[in-house]
Amino acid sequence: MTGFEQAIWATARPGGDVDTTCAIVGGIVAARLDLDDLPGAWLEATEPLPHWLGVRVRPGPSRGGRPLWPWAGTS
């Protein structure tokens, strides 16, 4: 289990507004990690961002030849 996964499960365990609290904690923890620190199965389950967002795509996991982890770079 990764630090990211542990943080999400620790946040979800008490219940309450789980989707919101996990989204907040996930964003904070993910900002401090490399993509390699995120669970591979969770990365594979994500959907790509729409092309109209105009984000540059970073190399990483892909599904059907499309990268999964775009980031908002300027170049």
Score class of each variant (00 low, 15 high):
9 W>D: 15
9 W>E: 15
10 A>S: 15
11 T>Y: 06
11 T>C: 15
11 T>S: 15
12 A>F: 09
13 R>F: 11
13 R>E: 13
14 P>V: 03
14 P>N: 10
14 P>S: 10
14 P>Q: 11
14 P>W: 12
15 G>W: 05
16 G>L: 07
16 G>T: 02
16 G>C: 02
16 G>H: 03
16 G>S: 04
18 V>S: 01
18 V>W: 00
18 V>Y: 00
18 V>G: 01
18 V>E: 04
20 T>L: 08
20 T>R: 04
22 C>Y: 02
22 C>G: 03
23 A>H: 07
23 A>M: 11
24 I>K: 15
24 I>A: 13
24 I>R: 15
25 V>R: 14
25 V>W: 02
25 V>F: 03
26 G>R: 00
27 G>A: 04
27 G>H: 02
27 G>R: 02
28 I>Q: 05
29 V>C: 01
29 V>S: 01
30 A>G: 04
30 A>H: 03
31 A>P: 00
31 A>Y: 05
31 A>T: 01
31 A>R: 06
32 R>L: 13
33 L>W: 01
34 D>T: 09
34 D>A: 11
34 D>S: 14
34 D>V: 04
34 D>I: 01
35 L>H: 05
35 L>R: 09
35 L>K: 05
35 L>C: 07
36 D>P: 00
36 D>C: 08
36 D>Q: 12
37 D>W: 03
38 L>S: 04
38 L>C: 01
38 L>Q: 04
39 P>W: 00
40 G>N: 08
40 G>K: 14
40 G>W: 12
41 A>H: 11
41 A>E: 12
41 A>Q: 11
41 A>N: 14
42 W>R: 09
42 W>I: 09
43 L>M: 12
43 L>I: 14
44 E>V: 04
44 E>L: 14
45 A>H: 07
45 A>F: 00
45 A>R: 08
45 A>D: 10
45 A>Q: 09
46 T>I: 07
46 T>W: 02
46 T>S: 07
47 E>K: 10
47 E>Q: 13
47 E>H: 08
48 P>H: 03
48 P>K: 03
48 P>E: 01
49 L>C: 09
49 L>D: 10
49 L>S: 11
49 L>H: 10
49 L>Y: 08
50 P>E: 09
51 H>K: 14
51 H>P: 14
52 W>T: 14
52 W>P: 07
52 W>F: 12
52 W>C: 11
54 G>Q: 03
54 G>K: 08
55 V>G: 09
55 V>C: 13
55 V>D: 11
57 V>A: 05
57 V>T: 14
57 V>F: 09
57 V>G: 02
58 R>N: 05
58 R>E: 12
58 R>T: 15
58 R>W: 08
59 P>Q: 10
59 P>G: 07
60 G>N: 02
60 G>K: 02
60 G>T: 01
61 P>E: 10
61 P>R: 14
61 P>V: 05
62 S>D: 05
62 S>L: 06
62 S>A: 13
62 S>Y: 07
62 S>V: 06
63 R>S: 12
63 R>C: 05
63 R>M: 04
64 G>I: 09
65 G>S: 07
65 G>V: 06
67 P>G: 09
67 P>A: 09
69 W>C: 13
69 W>Y: 12
70 P>I: 02
70 P>H: 06
70 P>V: 00
70 P>K: 08
71 W>A: 11
72 A>N: 13
72 A>T: 09
73 G>Q: 09
73 G>P: 05
73 G>W: 08
73 G>R: 11
73 G>D: 12
